[in-house]
Amino acid sequence: MDSDVLVYVDLNGTPHLVGRLWARRRKGRDSASFEYDKDWLANPIRFSLEPALQLGPGPFHTPASKPLFGALGDSTPDR
């Protein structure tokens, strides 16, 4: 099953589209890809979501040992 999700960050009450996450399951293995939105890359307040997702164009793919990027797998508030 494949799914894609728009990824936003909320900064001071304003949502900002950061990019798109694609998750997939192939042959019993989960994997994901992420690509930053071009407007986020041009935004002066931009930042990378985690070290594995350095700011830049093009898709990033999870390694075989990880089904999801760490920052996106644990993205809900702790409260």
Rank of each mutant, 00 (worst) to 15 (best):
F34V: 04
L55Q: 10
W40R: 01
T76S: 13
G19E: 07
E50H: 04
N43A: 13
H61A: 04
D10N: 09
G19C: 07
A64D: 08
M1K: 12
M1H: 15
P57L: 01
H16Y: 11
S3A: 12
L17M: 09
L49Q: 04
L53V: 02
P51R: 12
S33C: 14
L6Q: 04
F69K: 08
P57G: 12
G58P: 05
S33E: 14
D74S: 14
D30H: 05
G56R: 02
R26A: 01
R20K: 11
P44H: 09
F34I: 08
P44V: 12
A64G: 03
D37W: 06
L49H: 01
N43R: 10
P59I: 07
S65N: 14
A23S: 14
L21C: 10
R24F: 02
R25H: 12
L17E: 01
R26Q: 03
A64P: 07
S33V: 08
L49M: 10
G28N: 06
P44K: 04
V5P: 00
L68C: 12
L49S: 03
D10M: 13
L55G: 11
R24L: 00
P77G: 13
L17W: 06
L21G: 09
D4N: 15
G73T: 02
R26D: 14
R24A: 07
W40A: 01
R20I: 11
D4P: 00
G70K: 05
D78F: 09
D74R: 15
A42T: 03
N43P: 11
D78G: 15
D39L: 13
L11K: 04
